[in-house]
């Protein structure tokens, strides 16, 4: 108990330090990198609910991201609603879209689900790009109002970063509590084996829908924050590349853990900026690193190092126990021909 308490306190302090430290960053470039990374981290957490905890693939998360951002953009610019109201509507609406996407697709598994969600992303992007009257088409939406929180103007990067880190911390906490709750246990059960879960009396369909809704809602939240920060949105941000890069982030970091997606975001953001030193070879190296990490550490960076560190400090028994908890065959397909 004391150990857990110590752990919690440490994390709380870390979050608070991060929030405060964000006010002292003087470098505007770093500030932008951090803010965009924090938004990506929120996205990664939302994908992790599906991929990591429920065992569902999503290759169309940029769709939810875009729906959230465009809800804020459209409502704020065309109907002059306040940013916060827009944000609430955006979160609810993208959650609803998650539910609607989930209704037919929860019956699909593995690759089929992957392609279906990929299709969803392409469709959303196509609509954003072509529904000129509402979304402004390829020109996007400009002049979205920057939010103000208790008379603190968030258009200044530092305040925005502070706000977003606070949001991220809260979100991490909420997800943590959720995972430890019966809902989380049901998810992890149906991730391991759906039929067993069904037999145990878990309403598989309902729990999957819940995961889709929550995941969509959180991605929409990230979208709303993105719109508020950039004050400009266009369909290019919400394309297939975005969907792919989020799921890559989650899996590289270690899906099914909370620290994994966060670590993945941090590492990939850093990598992305650092590789700018290589000019033209940048994306070539990026591809090589991606493949290398997947090949050598398929379980994800965070679980890998966690196991390494634990095996350094404790007896062998504990390591074995941890190893078995990572199931290598979690995502089997429905139709195996």
């Amino acid at each position: 108990m004391t150990k857990t308490r110590l752990f919690y306190t440490a994390i709380t302090i870390l979050c608070i330090v991060c929030s405060i430290a964000s006010l002292y960053i003087q470098n505007l470039y770093l500030l932008r990198v951090f803010i965009l990374a924090a938004i990506t981290a929120i996205l990664a957490l939302s994908v992790n609910i599906l991929v990591g905890y429920t065992g569902q693939i999503s290759l169309g998360h940029a769709g939810f991201f875009g729906i959230g951002a465009y809800m804020v953009g459209i409502l704020n610019v065309n109907y002059h609603l306040s940013f916060w109201l827009c944000m609430v509507i955006a979160v609810l609406f993208s959650g609803l879209m998650g539910l609607i996407l989930g209704l037919p697709t929860t019956k699909l598994k593995g690759h089929f689900l992957g392609i279906a969600t990929l299709g969803f992303g392409v469709i959303v992007n196509g609509v954003l790009n072509n529904w000129m009257q509402v979304t402004g088409g390829p020109q996007g939406i400009r002049d979205i109002q920057s939010p103000t929180l208790f008379s603190i103007p968030l258009e200044y990067g530092n305040y925005f970063l502070g706000f977003i880190v606070a949001c991220l911390s809260l979100l991490v906490l909420v997800i943590y509590l959720l995972i430890k709750s019966p809902v989380g246990r049901a998810w992890s059960c149906l991730k391991q084996d759906e039929i067993t879960a069904y037999v145990t009396g878990i309403h598989v369909y309902r729990y999957k829908l819940l995961a889709f809704t929550l995941s969509g809602g959180i991605a929409g939240f990230a979208g709303a924050l993105f719109a508020g920060y950039m004050t400009f949105i266009s369909p290019d941000t919400f394309d297939l590349n975005q969907s792919i890069s989020i799921i890559t982030t989650v899996i590289l970091g270690g899906s099914g853990t909370i620290a994994g997606p966060l670590l993945g975001t941090a590492l990939l953001s850093f990598l992305n900026e650092w590789l700018r030193n290589f000019d033209e070879l940048r994306l070539v190296i990026y591809g090589v690193i991606l493949v290398a990490v997947i090949v050598f550490i398929p379980e994800g960076i965070y679980p890998f190092f966690k196991n390494k560190i634990i095996s350094l400090f404790s007896r062998r028994k504990r390591v074995n126990q941890l190893k078995t908890s990572i199931d290598p065959h979690a995502g089997k397909d429905a139709v195996n021909e």
Binding site: I247, T248, V284, G287, V295, A330
Partner: peptide
């Protein structure tokens, strides 16, 4: 390993080949 990992690996290969 999981099929998802292979898929990610193929994404990496795609980025690599295009940019190379």
């Amino acid at each position: 390993s999981e099929p998802l990992n292979m898929m990610l690996s193929s994404l990496g290969v795609s980025v690599f080949l295009v940019n190379l």
